[in-house]
Design a protein around this nucleic acid. Sequence first.
DNA 1: TATGAATGAGGTTTCATTCAT
DNA 2: TATGAATGAAACCTCATTCAT
Lengths: 243, 243, 243, 243
Amino acid sequence: MDLLPRSAMASSSLPRLGPVAGKVASFGQMSRKLTPRGKERRAQLIAFATHEFAEKGYHLTSVADIVDGLGVGKGVFYWYFSSKEELFVEIMRTSQRGMRRQQQAAITGVEDPVKRIELGIRAGVLWLAEHNDLRKLFEFARTEGRFREAMQSGQAVLVSDAQVHLEEAIEQGRIPDRDPEALALAIIGVSNQLTNVYIDGRNMNPEFVADLVVSFCRDGIGVGGCDGIGVSARDAIGASQRD
Amino acid sequence: MDLLPRSAMASSSLPRLGPVAGKVASFGQMSRKLTPRGKERRAQLIAFATHEFAEKGYHLTSVADIVDGLGVGKGVFYWYFSSKEELFVEIMRTSQRGMRRQQQAAITGVEDPVKRIELGIRAGVLWLAEHNDLRKLFEFARTEGRFREAMQSGQAVLVSDAQVHLEEAIEQGRIPDRDPEALALAIIGVSNQLTNVYIDGRNMNPEFVADLVVSFCRDGIGVGGCDGIGVSARDAIGASQRD
Amino acid sequence: MDLLPRSAMASSSLPRLGPVAGKVASFGQMSRKLTPRGKERRAQLIAFATHEFAEKGYHLTSVADIVDGLGVGKGVFYWYFSSKEELFVEIMRTSQRGMRRQQQAAITGVEDPVKRIELGIRAGVLWLAEHNDLRKLFEFARTEGRFREAMQSGQAVLVSDAQVHLEEAIEQGRIPDRDPEALALAIIGVSNQLTNVYIDGRNMNPEFVADLVVSFCRDGIGVGGCDGIGVSARDAIGASQRD
Amino acid sequence: MDLLPRSAMASSSLPRLGPVAGKVASFGQMSRKLTPRGKERRAQLIAFATHEFAEKGYHLTSVADIVDGLGVGKGVFYWYFSSKEELFVEIMRTSQRGMRRQQQAAITGVEDPVKRIELGIRAGVLWLAEHNDLRKLFEFARTEGRFREAMQSGQAVLVSDAQVHLEEAIEQGRIPDRDPEALALAIIGVSNQLTNVYIDGRNMNPEFVADLVVSFCRDGIGVGGCDGIGVSARDAIGASQRD
DNA sequence: TATGAATGAGGTTTCATTCAT
DNA sequence: TATGAATGAAACCTCATTCAT
């Protein structure tokens, strides 16, 4: 033998470590009492993971990438989060709350519903611009079953927020009477798309992009609309669902 | 050469019985001569993989899932595709071409640019509704670096298609003079969002959803618009980029 | 479904092909009656495979590489060879015979044993230079159990060829009386090493390298040697083996 | 940055608990902080893999073979080495260093250059005899492109070590003036060949084999040589390269 | 004879997760 | 709390070989 007697090789003197069998982590979130230091660590993990997820994608970012990037051990991760999945869901939840808060702050105290809609759109676009990483995560979350539900319920909140103002505008005759939910969804679609291409892709000025979105959506919902606008749409409202 | 002059290798006096080897395919794609049987297999793989990718997501669908689903061996997959990634890109490319073809077929011979836009939107939404699986793949492709480029170039084609009609409409004074690219992007954003929620999520009638999209976008681009519409947007055009 | 009804996917209409179970090819060489055309194909396969094996190594050259490189189907390969292993062994065998033939042709009719040794060395080096691919295969064959035996028996022939001349030289008192087998092996070692580095690695003139080898080996075996040379070696001859 | 300024990530106020991430290791090698336990494991893996590689060959030894042989999980391998290839290169590098160390230890303090050469040869042969597994790996490494470079640079060191002594011997007129590099290579060729056949193949006494090699090489380089030795070689020196 | 299609064991590698220390 | 070591299922992919056509 060369470096070690053969017998010594086969029967290692080292005891075995590691998991015994495929124990799956129970789903659900961890709730641990955290010291201030612990809170900072947790925030660090979230911040860095968000960055990595956005950069490379959820699946291409391993837990090892995250802890290595912060220079900590694997145990740290599982001390604060019960799984990678839980971390992701946590990021989603927090972010959606943050976006909503910013949107609501922007419209607080504004009387005019149309103005509220405009300000809401603008706040939304600016938030997305500022939290570009999170916008990417939202996009991903929509594409995978287990995260979809969380995403949709979050989006539903935004939609219903917008709906309120749209309904008020309709009641006041400021815009034509079209399905407010559809209008809200359309607004979200425009916001995401233009933010994606113009801010993420071309690094344009967020205020400018917000203007574009507002401009398209103002017209789209029929603000300042003349007679005849949206007629076909109004006719369509109330149509039945398939199947 | 050792046993035979190199030239003797390449050009044997024996009749060529197969393809002349040689690397072809500049973009990583396999290009094999396929028998009818082979073509059928390949189509089967694409169809089944598309379904699985849409259902579970790209990463959660393994090559094993695909070949097991078809009841064939693993080698079959790699006979037709050089990698899972290549298959995905192939699906993207083909789909985008298909969508464009359908859109162009819908507007062929129509004089009025505004009408062309409407028909294009409608055709797009109906295609998305019909190929819901592919719509999901598009969403995913946008979220991962290696597929993003392919997606964006495909989307760029759709955008520039729409731009042509928008520009013509602007020239004819049918809609206000706003950045046609932004308008095209906004239309795409609305189409995706409403299709996603209403057709994929709630299984609504695609024609109805198409109506919703057309309605919002007609107004959004300013069809039949009055003075004063889009003023702020027009002012914003030409603003500089961030950073 | 998108491209194919789901039911059609799972149950392919294509019958299954391929091997049924792990049947191992019986070892041994194929002996088929070959037409002239068949002989040419076989030679083509050998030539191309030799080239590829030398370039990339035996394990990194797949049967597919070989048949693709010649633009033929897989069946061709297995028509002429029962396995990749058999092909390799066949190349070894043929080559060793070729080298020996060239070496013997070079010394035919030469009286002086020392001259024969020199000419043999020179012929060997030139053969190795000309068949550099095969030299590489020889090196590889030595490193893997299943090919080793074939290699060693082939080398043994060369050694015993050389031994004859060395013994005659010793008998004639032309060189000191040292173990002729060891001398023959040493000559082979020098030939291989210098050919490897100078011809394969630095593309030097084979004649020049042959001179270097001859020069070292002439002295090494003690041609023109003075008294006292090789004394310690002579003492060592006859020493017992280990174990 | 999205949630935390980027700088905040890199330099947290929390004490650094592990290595600061960051790619190190310019040549693909892993450089992990290892505990004593880890070092032992790594050494075990190297020892066992060396044994297996030598026994069955690099390609016929799978990572599974290695970890199974040690009774550990597959992940262990990739904890210590980034790939099978890296492990192999690591073995090569370490071994070459080890051989050189032993050779240099053997000649330290010896005045006579010819004596140094003899002792160096002897030390080399004895090292090869003692590390027969590694000798086999060296042979294999020469046959495959990706390992060749590492091998050659390692061998170049040995050659240049020997060259120094040969040049000194030439200057002192102890041996004829022939290309010292060629002489060094020839010595290596003889050492490998005789060790291979006599020690690995026939299990002879290493000391005896070392005597054989020294004897042949002493004469080969012309120690104690008379006039007229090496004339043709001297003439050849300086000849041009092919092509 | 020759081909393209198919097989499937087995190769390397990754990675979420666990746990002794 | 934190770490490094370990697990092992499972992922992607390769390839010698077989065989219907």
